[in-house]
Nucleic acid binder design. Sequence first.
DNA 1: CTTTACCTTTGATTTAACTCCAAGGTTTAT
DNA 2: ATAAACCTTGGAGTTAAATCAAAGGTAAAG
Lengths: 150, 150
Amino acid sequence: MYRIGEIAKLNQVKTDTLRFYEKQGLLTPSLRSESGYRIYTKKDAQRLRFIIRAKTVGFTLVEISELLSIELDKSNKACADVKNIVDMKLAHVNEKIEELNYFKVSLQQLSDDCCGGPESAEHCSILEALESNSSAISCVNNSHQQHKIT
Amino acid sequence: MYRIGEIAKLNQVKTDTLRFYEKQGLLTPSLRSESGYRIYTKKDAQRLRFIIRAKTVGFTLVEISELLSIELDKSNKACADVKNIVDMKLAHVNEKIEELNYFKVSLQQLSDDCCGGPESAEHCSILEALESNSSAISCVNNSHQQHKIT
DNA sequence: CTTTACCTTTGATTTAACTCCAAGGTTTAT
DNA sequence: ATAAACCTTGGAGTTAAATCAAAGGTAAAG
Protein backbone atom coordinates (compact mmCIF):
# COMPACT_ATOMS: atom_id res chain seq x y z
CA MET A 1 0.00 0.00 0.00
CA TYR A 2 1.69 3.15 -1.18
CA ARG A 3 0.62 6.70 -1.55
CA ILE A 4 1.42 8.52 -4.74
CA GLY A 5 4.60 10.16 -3.52
CA GLU A 6 5.93 6.94 -2.13
CA ILE A 7 5.38 4.80 -5.19
CA ALA A 8 6.67 7.62 -7.37
CA LYS A 9 9.94 7.84 -5.49
CA LEU A 10 10.35 4.08 -5.43
CA ASN A 11 10.02 3.94 -9.19
CA GLN A 12 11.76 7.16 -10.08
CA VAL A 13 8.79 8.78 -11.71
CA LYS A 14 6.99 12.01 -10.93
CA THR A 15 3.61 12.08 -9.25
CA ASP A 16 2.44 14.01 -12.28
CA THR A 17 3.40 11.10 -14.44
CA LEU A 18 1.32 8.75 -12.34
CA ARG A 19 -1.70 10.99 -12.62
CA PHE A 20 -1.02 11.21 -16.32
CA TYR A 21 -0.95 7.41 -16.60
CA GLU A 22 -4.20 7.31 -14.70
CA LYS A 23 -5.79 9.73 -17.13
CA GLN A 24 -4.56 7.55 -19.99
CA GLY A 25 -6.14 4.52 -18.40
CA LEU A 26 -2.84 2.78 -17.90
CA LEU A 27 -2.70 2.66 -14.14
CA THR A 28 -5.52 3.46 -11.78
CA PRO A 29 -4.79 2.96 -8.11
CA SER A 30 -6.98 0.18 -6.71
CA LEU A 31 -8.04 2.19 -3.70
CA ARG A 32 -8.67 5.63 -2.38
CA SER A 33 -8.33 6.57 1.25
CA GLU A 34 -11.33 8.08 3.00
CA SER A 35 -9.82 11.44 2.39
CA GLY A 36 -9.42 10.73 -1.30
CA TYR A 37 -5.73 9.90 -1.43
CA ARG A 38 -4.67 7.48 -4.13
CA ILE A 39 -3.67 4.17 -2.59
CA TYR A 40 -1.52 1.91 -4.74
CA THR A 41 -1.43 -1.78 -3.91
CA LYS A 42 1.39 -4.25 -4.58
CA LYS A 43 -0.43 -5.21 -7.72
CA ASP A 44 -0.55 -1.61 -8.85
CA ALA A 45 3.16 -1.34 -8.18
CA GLN A 46 3.76 -4.43 -10.26
CA ARG A 47 1.71 -2.93 -13.04
CA LEU A 48 3.74 0.26 -12.88
CA ARG A 49 6.98 -1.65 -13.11
CA PHE A 50 5.57 -3.43 -16.11
CA ILE A 51 4.79 -0.12 -17.78
CA ILE A 52 8.25 1.25 -17.09
CA ARG A 53 9.90 -1.90 -18.33
CA ALA A 54 7.87 -1.93 -21.51
CA LYS A 55 8.74 1.70 -22.12
CA THR A 56 12.46 1.09 -21.87
CA VAL A 57 12.29 -1.49 -24.62
CA GLY A 58 10.51 0.83 -26.97
CA PHE A 59 6.82 0.15 -26.50
CA THR A 60 4.56 3.17 -26.76
CA LEU A 61 1.95 3.81 -24.10
CA VAL A 62 -0.72 2.68 -26.54
CA GLU A 63 1.07 -0.61 -27.13
CA ILE A 64 1.52 -1.02 -23.41
CA SER A 65 -2.17 -0.59 -22.73
CA GLU A 66 -2.82 -3.18 -25.41
CA LEU A 67 -0.56 -5.57 -23.56
CA LEU A 68 -2.26 -4.76 -20.30
CA SER A 69 -5.73 -5.04 -21.75
CA ILE A 70 -5.09 -8.73 -22.20
CA GLU A 71 -5.61 -8.82 -18.49
CA LEU A 72 -8.53 -6.49 -18.25
CA ASP A 73 -10.55 -8.23 -20.91
CA LYS A 74 -9.79 -11.68 -19.68
CA SER A 75 -13.26 -12.65 -18.54
CA ASN A 76 -14.88 -11.29 -21.66
CA LYS A 77 -12.73 -13.15 -24.10
CA ALA A 78 -12.49 -16.71 -25.11
CA CYS A 79 -9.16 -18.43 -24.72
CA ALA A 80 -8.76 -18.52 -28.47
CA ASP A 81 -8.93 -14.72 -28.61
CA VAL A 82 -6.49 -14.28 -25.80
CA LYS A 83 -4.12 -16.71 -27.41
CA ASN A 84 -4.28 -14.83 -30.65
CA ILE A 85 -3.55 -11.47 -29.13
CA VAL A 86 -0.79 -12.88 -26.99
CA ASP A 87 0.84 -14.60 -29.92
CA MET A 88 0.89 -11.39 -31.91
CA LYS A 89 2.53 -9.53 -29.06
CA LEU A 90 4.93 -12.38 -28.63
CA ALA A 91 6.01 -12.08 -32.23
CA HIS A 92 6.59 -8.38 -31.68
CA VAL A 93 8.72 -9.05 -28.63
CA ASN A 94 10.69 -11.69 -30.47
CA GLU A 95 11.45 -9.24 -33.24
CA LYS A 96 12.82 -6.79 -30.74
CA ILE A 97 14.94 -9.44 -29.12
CA GLU A 98 16.38 -10.32 -32.50
CA GLU A 99 17.25 -6.70 -33.16
CA LEU A 100 18.97 -6.46 -29.82
CA ASN A 101 20.88 -9.66 -30.35
CA TYR A 102 22.13 -8.14 -33.55
CA PHE A 103 23.56 -5.26 -31.54
CA LYS A 104 24.78 -7.52 -28.85
CA VAL A 105 26.77 -9.79 -31.10
CA SER A 106 28.33 -6.82 -32.84
CA LEU A 107 29.21 -5.01 -29.68
CA GLN A 108 30.55 -8.19 -28.16
CA GLN A 109 32.79 -8.71 -31.15
CA LEU A 110 33.99 -5.18 -30.96
CA SER A 111 34.80 -5.59 -27.33
CA ASP A 112 36.46 -8.96 -27.77
CA ASP A 113 38.55 -7.78 -30.68
CA CYS A 114 39.88 -4.74 -28.96
CA CYS A 115 42.86 -5.73 -26.97
CA GLY A 116 41.99 -2.99 -24.57
CA GLY A 117 45.44 -1.54 -24.85
CA PRO A 118 46.63 1.94 -25.68
CA GLU A 119 46.95 1.29 -29.41
CA SER A 120 44.77 3.14 -31.87
CA ALA A 121 41.50 1.46 -32.54
CA GLU A 122 41.67 1.78 -36.29
CA HIS A 123 39.09 -0.27 -38.14
CA CYS A 124 37.03 -0.92 -35.02
CA SER A 125 33.45 0.11 -35.51
CA ILE A 126 30.06 -1.17 -34.68
CA LEU A 127 29.00 -0.86 -38.27
CA GLU A 128 31.91 -2.94 -39.44
CA ALA A 129 31.00 -5.48 -36.81
CA LEU A 130 27.41 -5.46 -37.98
CA GLU A 131 28.59 -5.85 -41.53
CA SER A 132 30.56 -8.92 -40.64
CA ASN A 133 27.22 -10.42 -39.71
CA SER A 134 28.24 -12.50 -36.73
CA SER A 135 30.85 -14.54 -38.60
CA ALA A 136 33.98 -12.67 -39.59
CA ILE A 137 35.53 -10.07 -37.39
CA SER A 138 35.83 -6.42 -38.20
CA CYS A 139 38.68 -5.29 -36.05
CA VAL A 140 41.65 -6.01 -38.26
CA ASN A 141 44.18 -3.79 -36.63
CA ASN A 142 46.21 -6.95 -36.36
CA SER A 143 49.21 -5.60 -34.63
CA HIS A 144 47.57 -5.85 -31.28
CA GLN A 145 44.77 -8.31 -31.15
CA GLN A 146 43.96 -11.94 -31.28
CA HIS A 147 40.77 -13.36 -32.62
CA LYS A 148 39.03 -14.89 -29.72
CA ILE A 149 36.68 -17.71 -30.48
CA THR A 150 33.69 -17.39 -28.23
CA MET B 1 24.29 4.46 -54.65
CA TYR B 2 20.89 5.86 -53.91
CA ARG B 3 19.32 9.23 -54.12
CA ILE B 4 17.31 10.50 -51.22
CA GLY B 5 13.92 9.46 -52.54
CA GLU B 6 15.14 5.98 -53.33
CA ILE B 7 16.75 5.21 -50.02
CA ALA B 8 13.78 6.76 -48.24
CA LYS B 9 11.31 4.49 -49.99
CA LEU B 10 13.49 1.43 -49.44
CA ASN B 11 13.57 2.09 -45.72
CA GLN B 12 10.07 3.45 -45.27
CA VAL B 13 11.13 6.83 -44.03
CA LYS B 14 10.40 10.30 -45.37
CA THR B 15 13.00 12.32 -47.22
CA ASP B 16 12.41 14.97 -44.58
CA THR B 17 13.45 12.50 -41.95
CA LEU B 18 16.71 11.83 -43.77
CA ARG B 19 17.47 15.55 -43.99
CA PHE B 20 16.57 15.78 -40.32
CA TYR B 21 18.99 12.98 -39.44
CA GLU B 22 21.62 14.78 -41.44
CA LYS B 23 21.03 17.98 -39.50
CA GLN B 24 21.34 15.98 -36.28
CA GLY B 25 24.64 14.56 -37.45
CA LEU B 26 23.34 11.01 -37.53
CA LEU B 27 23.60 10.29 -41.20
CA THR B 28 25.35 12.40 -43.78
CA PRO B 29 25.38 10.99 -47.30
CA SER B 30 28.93 10.19 -48.34
CA LEU B 31 28.63 11.92 -51.67
CA ARG B 32 26.92 14.68 -53.54
CA SER B 33 26.29 14.63 -57.25
CA GLU B 34 27.69 17.46 -59.37
CA SER B 35 24.29 19.05 -59.20
CA GLY B 36 24.23 18.80 -55.42
CA TYR B 37 21.98 15.79 -54.99
CA ARG B 38 22.61 13.68 -51.92
CA ILE B 39 24.13 10.34 -52.87
CA TYR B 40 23.86 7.57 -50.32
CA THR B 41 26.28 4.66 -50.55
CA LYS B 42 25.74 1.09 -49.38
CA LYS B 43 27.51 2.03 -46.21
CA ASP B 44 25.16 4.94 -45.66
CA ALA B 45 22.24 2.59 -46.19
CA GLN B 46 23.67 0.23 -43.62
CA ARG B 47 24.04 3.08 -41.21
CA LEU B 48 20.43 4.07 -41.78
CA ARG B 49 19.23 0.55 -41.08
CA PHE B 50 21.27 0.63 -37.91
CA ILE B 51 19.54 3.81 -36.82
CA ILE B 52 16.10 2.44 -37.56
CA ARG B 53 16.85 -0.79 -35.75
CA ALA B 54 18.18 1.00 -32.71
CA LYS B 55 15.09 3.18 -32.63
CA THR B 56 12.71 0.25 -32.60
CA VAL B 57 14.33 -1.12 -29.47
CA GLY B 58 14.01 2.13 -27.61
CA PHE B 59 17.26 3.97 -28.15
CA THR B 60 16.97 7.72 -28.47
CA LEU B 61 18.67 9.53 -31.32
CA VAL B 62 21.24 10.81 -28.86
CA GLU B 63 22.04 7.30 -27.70
CA ILE B 64 22.21 6.15 -31.27
CA SER B 65 24.71 8.80 -32.18
CA GLU B 66 26.75 7.73 -29.18
CA LEU B 67 26.75 4.21 -30.53
CA LEU B 68 27.70 5.45 -33.95
CA SER B 69 30.38 7.75 -32.64
CA ILE B 70 32.30 4.69 -31.63
CA GLU B 71 32.94 4.41 -35.32
CA LEU B 72 33.61 8.02 -36.01
CA ASP B 73 36.11 8.39 -33.24
CA LYS B 74 37.87 5.15 -33.91
CA SER B 75 41.15 6.57 -35.13
CA ASN B 76 41.32 9.11 -32.34
CA LYS B 77 40.81 6.67 -29.54
CA ALA B 78 42.90 4.02 -27.99
CA CYS B 79 41.57 0.52 -27.97
CA ALA B 80 41.08 0.71 -24.24
CA ASP B 81 38.74 3.67 -24.65
CA VAL B 82 36.76 1.99 -27.36
CA LYS B 83 36.50 -1.14 -25.28
CA ASN B 84 35.19 0.84 -22.36
CA ILE B 85 32.53 2.60 -24.31
CA VAL B 86 31.51 -0.57 -26.07
CA ASP B 87 31.26 -2.48 -22.84
CA MET B 88 28.98 0.14 -21.36
CA LYS B 89 26.72 0.03 -24.35
CA LEU B 90 26.81 -3.73 -24.22
CA ALA B 91 25.58 -3.68 -20.66
CA HIS B 92 22.75 -1.42 -21.72
CA VAL B 93 21.78 -3.76 -24.54
CA ASN B 94 21.93 -6.75 -22.22
CA GLU B 95 19.58 -5.02 -19.83
CA LYS B 96 17.10 -4.47 -22.58
CA ILE B 97 17.35 -8.07 -23.67
CA GLU B 98 16.65 -9.18 -20.14
CA GLU B 99 13.59 -6.96 -19.97
CA LEU B 100 12.33 -8.42 -23.20
CA ASN B 101 12.96 -11.97 -22.08
CA TYR B 102 10.87 -11.18 -19.07
CA PHE B 103 7.99 -10.28 -21.37
CA LYS B 104 8.70 -13.18 -23.61
CA VAL B 105 8.56 -15.82 -20.94
CA SER B 106 5.36 -14.38 -19.57
CA LEU B 107 3.68 -14.09 -22.91
CA GLN B 108 4.81 -17.55 -23.86
CA GLN B 109 3.33 -18.96 -20.67
CA LEU B 110 0.11 -17.15 -21.31
CA SER B 111 -0.02 -18.54 -24.79
CA ASP B 112 0.90 -22.06 -23.75
CA ASP B 113 -1.60 -22.12 -20.93
CA CYS B 114 -4.47 -21.02 -23.05
CA CYS B 115 -5.88 -24.06 -24.75
CA GLY B 116 -6.98 -21.81 -27.56
CA GLY B 117 -10.54 -23.01 -27.25
CA PRO B 118 -13.73 -21.05 -26.84
CA GLU B 119 -13.70 -21.20 -23.06
CA SER B 120 -13.37 -18.03 -21.06
CA ALA B 121 -9.81 -17.10 -20.30
CA GLU B 122 -10.43 -16.34 -16.66
CA HIS B 123 -7.25 -15.79 -14.67
CA CYS B 124 -5.11 -15.38 -17.78
CA SER B 125 -3.14 -12.19 -17.66
CA ILE B 126 0.30 -11.04 -18.47
CA LEU B 127 0.71 -9.59 -15.03
CA GLU B 128 -0.20 -12.87 -13.41
CA ALA B 129 2.27 -14.57 -15.68
CA LEU B 130 4.91 -12.03 -14.75
CA GLU B 131 4.07 -12.59 -11.12
CA SER B 132 4.66 -16.29 -11.47
CA ASN B 133 8.19 -15.31 -12.39
CA SER B 134 8.95 -17.98 -14.97
CA SER B 135 8.21 -20.89 -12.62
CA ALA B 136 4.56 -21.40 -11.72
CA ILE B 137 1.78 -20.85 -14.14
CA SER B 138 -0.92 -18.26 -13.82
CA CYS B 139 -3.67 -19.62 -15.97
CA VAL B 140 -5.58 -21.74 -13.53
CA ASN B 141 -8.85 -21.99 -15.33
CA ASN B 142 -8.30 -25.69 -15.04
CA SER B 143 -11.33 -26.94 -16.82
CA HIS B 144 -9.71 -26.54 -20.18
CA GLN B 145 -5.99 -26.52 -20.05
CA GLN B 146 -3.00 -28.65 -19.43
CA HIS B 147 0.22 -27.38 -18.01
CA LYS B 148 2.79 -27.85 -20.67
CA ILE B 149 6.32 -28.26 -19.51
CA THR B 150 8.56 -26.40 -21.90
C1' DC C 1 0.12 24.03 14.58
C1' DT C 2 2.35 24.47 10.77
C1' DT C 3 4.89 22.38 7.13
C1' DT C 4 4.55 18.92 3.84
C1' DA C 5 1.91 15.85 1.08
C1' DC C 6 -2.00 15.25 -1.06
C1' DC C 7 -6.44 16.58 -3.67
C1' DT C 8 -8.95 18.93 -7.83
C1' DT C 9 -9.26 21.25 -12.51
C1' DT C 10 -7.50 23.68 -16.19
C1' DG C 11 -4.13 24.95 -19.03
C1' DA C 12 0.61 26.04 -20.51
C1' DT C 13 5.22 24.45 -21.61
C1' DT C 14 8.78 21.16 -22.86
C1' DT C 15 11.35 17.66 -25.40
C1' DA C 16 12.02 14.36 -28.93
C1' DA C 17 11.34 13.18 -33.25
C1' DC C 18 9.53 14.12 -36.83
C1' DT C 19 6.46 16.28 -40.70
C1' DC C 20 4.87 19.86 -43.47
C1' DC C 21 4.98 24.18 -45.97
C1' DA C 22 6.59 28.09 -48.70
C1' DA C 23 9.36 30.20 -51.96
C1' DG C 24 12.40 30.10 -55.50
C1' DG C 25 15.59 27.44 -58.15
C1' DT C 26 18.03 23.27 -60.69
C1' DT C 27 18.07 18.53 -62.60
C1' DT C 28 16.49 14.43 -64.47
C1' DA C 29 13.21 11.47 -66.64
C1' DT C 30 9.45 10.81 -70.19
C1' DA D 1 9.47 20.61 -72.88
C1' DT D 2 7.27 19.66 -68.95
C1' DA D 3 6.42 16.96 -64.87
C1' DA D 4 8.60 14.86 -61.13
C1' DA D 5 12.47 14.76 -58.15
C1' DC D 6 15.78 17.16 -56.17
C1' DC D 7 18.13 21.47 -53.94
C1' DT D 8 18.19 25.48 -50.28
C1' DT D 9 16.76 28.19 -46.01
C1' DG D 10 13.64 29.05 -42.67
C1' DG D 11 9.91 28.40 -40.01
C1' DA D 12 5.43 26.33 -38.52
C1' DG D 13 2.77 22.33 -36.98
C1' DT D 14 2.20 17.63 -34.94
C1' DT D 15 2.33 13.70 -31.76
C1' DA D 16 3.78 11.37 -27.71
C1' DA D 17 4.96 11.64 -23.24
C1' DA D 18 5.52 14.00 -19.97
C1' DT D 19 6.24 18.18 -16.79
C1' DC D 20 5.07 22.47 -14.66
C1' DA D 21 2.11 25.98 -12.82
C1' DA D 22 -1.69 28.16 -10.50
C1' DA D 23 -5.45 28.36 -7.52
C1' DG D 24 -7.80 26.87 -3.69
C1' DG D 25 -8.43 23.41 -0.78
C1' DT D 26 -8.00 19.02 2.78
C1' DA D 27 -5.08 15.65 5.36
C1' DA D 28 -1.26 13.92 7.77
C1' DA D 29 3.13 14.11 10.19
C1' DG D 30 6.50 16.16 13.35
